[in-house]
Design a protein around this nucleic acid. Structure first.
Length: 467
RNA sequence: GACCCGUUCGUCUAAGGGUUAGGACACCGCCCUUUCACGGCGGUAAUACGGGUUCGAAUCCCGUACGGGUCGCCA
């Protein structure tokens, strides 16, 4: 991996709130922050924003951490690995927040209101100099003085001084987010554009703490195909579902990277390290994008095709196991090679190769119909039977190919004329993995078995063949 | 409703004053081929609308429409 040695000081973070699953939007935010840090040889940290004790759960923390690990987005500081700026759970940082609150109070910038504590917003215009969105200016005193009541459908007067601590002592996002970014030395904040409107508040807090804010880059949102915000129920929304469906981590990373960022070249398939090399803030788009599950699957398929067989074996094993196919069967590597080009996700694999391993097969009636209606079907099947039984036949791909060619020639037919009946008789349907390699894996005994079963079932003995 | 952000093929995007507006997914056709896939070749398909600035606008400016976001003692 090539790193730019210039700004070794880059520090980015992913700061999820553990109130549910790791979803595609959060994962993409994590990915961008990770890519940016890695590209610059900087530091990527993970901070858990669990100040909402009502909604935060241990399960959710586990799911988020597992998801990030699965995506190969490792963090240099954070849960499990620790670091100099810990703790990395906001629920454990209350003492730090108390200290900052005291500073605000001493400066007359915070006051109590019905048990809560509010930050006194200055009457001035804050300008976010966003790397993606450009300059965005807001006066909090003005903007915050009205609030829209959705139920009433109209605006009401509001207190522009926002709450930073609940009556129960719990601190609020804006406050802790700013303090932690400050305390943890974050240099670049990449987050969803839904935070753009919050940023002036954060700027006001940074100013109150006499601190230089980090650089902001608000990234466009991922929408579902119908154009609204992705919800957990949309296909492709939850990271653990990709894992279950048999996506490769790098395939998902690749697709997420392309949703909202462009390498500005025609190439689209990238390994994680190729993404690290190319990632830059300039390539981030300004407009929201719609999630396309089909393309995501295609990207994954490309990764699958380029995977060495050895790695594919490891990735596929759990999916084979689940389908009742022994992952340690010596025929698996070759079978996976046959399957590789015709699947998009790992979960597709058993469906493609089970015909090789299943002891009993079922015949697709339309395919059978097509084949047994041929005038010379009995002759073809007999030729196959003779060829397969021959002691001279070496049961290998080459041997089978030669034997089938010979059998075809023997009855004055082309090889092609023999292939489809053979395929249907042995594998049950007209389409599927390459026939000859499949036969080689199925083996002589099973092949002969299937052939005679086929004859018994579909080719009645007494017809006009001899008259 | 107010404020903010945005708008190039159906979708992801490239081009950022001069291109036959390029690539990819999907779709269609042809080729390869023992089938299906993979691969190759080709096709359909876009600058939201209206004004300006300019010799020239997808590109700069203004307006309109549409989409999204924010307006919590959620993050």
């Amino acid at each position: 991996m090539r790193h730019l040695h210039s700004d070794m000081t880059v520090r980015t973070r992913f700061a999820p709130s553990p109130t549910g699953f790791l979803h595609i939007g959060g994962a993409r935010t994590a990915l961008y922050n990770w890519l940016f840090a890695r590209h610059h040889g900087g530091t990527f940290l993970l901070r858990i924003e669990d100040t909402d004790t009502e909604r935060s759960t241990q399960d959710s923390i586990r799911i988020i951490l597992d998801g990030l690990r699965w995506l190969k987005l490792d963090w240099d500081e954070g849960p499990d690995v620790g670091g100099p700026c810990g703790p990395y759970f906001q629920s454990e940082r209350t003492a730090i927040y108390d200290r900052y609150l005291a500073r605000l109070e001493a400066a007359g910038l915070a006051y109590e209101d019905e048990g809560a504590i509010r930050f006194r917003v200055p009457d001035k215009t804050y300008t976010v100099n966003d790397i993606v969105c450009g300059e965005v200016s807001t006066n909090l005193k003005v903007a915050g003085s009205r609030r829209y009541d959705a139920e009433l459908g109209r605006e009401l007067d509001a207190n522009p001084d926002f709450v930073i601590r609940r009556p129960n002592g719990g601190y609020i996002f804006h406050f802790v987010n700013v303090i932690d970014d400050l305390e943890m030395g974050i240099t670049h904040v990449m987050r969803g554009e839904d935070h753009l409107s919050n940023t002036p508040k954060h700027l006001a807090l940074f100013e109150a703490f006499d601190a230089t804010p980090p650089q902001f880059a608000h990234i466009p949102l991922n929408l579902n195909p119908s154009g609204s915000k992705m919800s957990k129920r949309d296909q492709g929304a939850l990271i653990h579902e990709y894992q279950e469906a048999g996506f490769l981590p790098e395939g998902v990373d690749n697709y997420m990277a392309l949703l909202g960022w462009s390498p500005k070249e025609d190439k689209e398939i990238f390994s994680l390290s190729e993404l690290v090399e190319r990632f830059d803030l300039k390539g981030i788009n300004r407009s929201n994008s719609k999630f396309d599950y089909e393309k995501c699957r295609w990207v994954n398929a490309e990764h699958l095709r380029h995977l060495p067989t050895k790695s594919l074996e490891e990735f596929a094993a759990p999916f084979l196991d689940k389908a009742g196919i022994d992952p340690n069967d010596s025929r698996i590597p070759r079978a996976l090679e046959l399957a590789k080009d015709r699947v998009q996700v790992l979960a597709d694999i058993p469906g493609v190769i089970s015909v090789i391993f299943n002891s009993s097969i079922s015949w697709d009636s339309a395919s059978v119909e097509k084949v047994i209606s041929r005038a010379n079907i009995k002759e073809l099947i007999q030729a196959l039977h003779t060829a397969f039984e021959s002691d001279a036949l070496e049961w290998t791909e080459q041997g089978l190919h030669d034997a089938l060619s010979g059998a075809a020639t023997g009855i004055g037919a082309k090889l092609g004329a023999l292939m489809l009946p053979c395929r249907v008789a042995i594998m049950g349907q007209a389409t599927g993995v390459d026939l000859i390699p499949a036969l080689a894996l199925i083996g002589r005994d099973a092949t002969l078995h299937r052939l005679s079963d086929f004859v018994d079932q579909f080719l009645p003995k007494d017809d006009q063949q001899d008259s």
